[in-house]
Simulated assay, not measured.
Amino acid sequence: MGGGADGWDDGSLPFWERENATPPAKPRTPPKDHDGHRDRLRERFASAGPDALADYELLELLLFRFIPRRDTKPIAKALLARFGTLEDVLNAPADLLTEVDGIGDATALDIRVVTAVNQRAFRASLRSREILSSWSAVVDYCHASMAHETREQFRILFLDRRNALIADEVQQVGTVNHTPVYPREVMGRALALSASALVLVHNHPSGDPNPSRADIEMTKTLVGVAEALGIQIHDHLIIGRNGHFSFRAQQLL
């Protein structure tokens, strides 16, 4: 006779086969439409600007593009609950992002791309400026680039005679609490780029930007070698998650 409740048993099979047969998968019901909420959020952003939105709402706007068929509000809130701040979310490693329900490998990669684009644009803006007159922008850029790294990096900003940025390079990557620095390599690269001045930067994954004794001694060594070559070291910045330490400002340089 006619089909069962699922509409798949048309009576054409013997009863012993019908009893054990697996019904075909039901057509997937399209996810709930969240267009109304998304449109309202977009309109609020367009009319009132980003300051009118909470952090989770800005994150929602971003996730709309990456996860078009899901309600992204709980995902945005879960990301902030897991990592703490919007900055921490955008700088989180991809493998940790995927630990949050709703974030797959593709979405984690998309978030990392957004972070990379932001950092690249930040760096490009520095190239058009005289570094010493844009010092807060330099510090902000270094913080955005390094504060959330899980291993120490030693970075150098190479400057020309006008103190404009020639190159920004990570010279060494170390462990969670140490990065080897080789003065010969630092100065060799500076000479190859015809740099007249340097800004040294490294991060402390622990979050505490205060220098160690080794940091102080290493800086003194680099300053001495640089002076012998006619190269000026403007500053050595140590970047922590919640702040930075300037050797110049603390009169250690």
Rank of each mutant, 00 (worst) to 15 (best):
E227L: 11
P205V: 05
D51T: 14
M146R: 01
A147Y: 01
R189C: 03
F158D: 04
G7T: 09
I111H: 05
D235N: 12
H148T: 05
R82K: 12
D95F: 13
M146P: 00
I166S: 08
V113L: 14
E227R: 15
R155N: 09
A25H: 10
D101C: 06
A190N: 09
K220G: 13
V199Y: 00
R38Q: 11
K32S: 08
S194L: 10
G11F: 05
P211E: 01
L229D: 08
W16G: 02
S246Y: 03
S125Y: 02
V139E: 05
E169Y: 09
D110G: 06
L222P: 04
C142D: 03
I75Q: 04
R151C: 01
I131W: 03
H37Q: 10
H202D: 03
E227T: 12
V170H: 02
L96C: 02
D160V: 09
D6T: 14
K26E: 15
P31E: 03
A106H: 11
R69H: 12
T115K: 15
L80R: 00
H234R: 06
L237G: 00
T115C: 10
A226G: 08
I156N: 03
P23M: 05
E130H: 10
H234T: 07
L79N: 07
A249W: 02
S133Y: 06
S145L: 05
V181I: 15
A192R: 04
Q232V: 13
A54I: 02
G188C: 03
Q172H: 09
M1H: 12
V139W: 01
H236G: 05
L59E: 09
P74I: 01
A108V: 12
M218F: 02
I131L: 14
E185T: 12
K73A: 13
V114H: 10
G4R: 04
E17K: 15
D208W: 02
P209F: 02
Q119A: 04
R213G: 10
L90H: 00
L63H: 07
S145D: 09
L165Q: 06
R189V: 00
R162H: 09
A226F: 08
R129P: 01
A108C: 12
E217R: 13
G240C: 04
T72N: 09
H178G: 04
L41C: 08
P74K: 01
G102I: 06
R38L: 05
H143D: 03
G7A: 04
L222G: 06
I233S: 04
A21K: 14
D10S: 11
P211I: 02
G84K: 00
R127K: 13
A190D: 00
V186N: 08
G224I: 00
A226R: 08
L97E: 11
A48K: 14
G4L: 04
D88F: 00
F154C: 11
A78S: 14
E17M: 14
H178C: 11
S212N: 05
L61S: 07
R69G: 05
M1D: 11
A76E: 04
R38K: 08
V225W: 10
A76S: 12
R248F: 13
P50F: 04
R162M: 11
M1N: 10
R127D: 01
F66K: 06
P14Y: 07
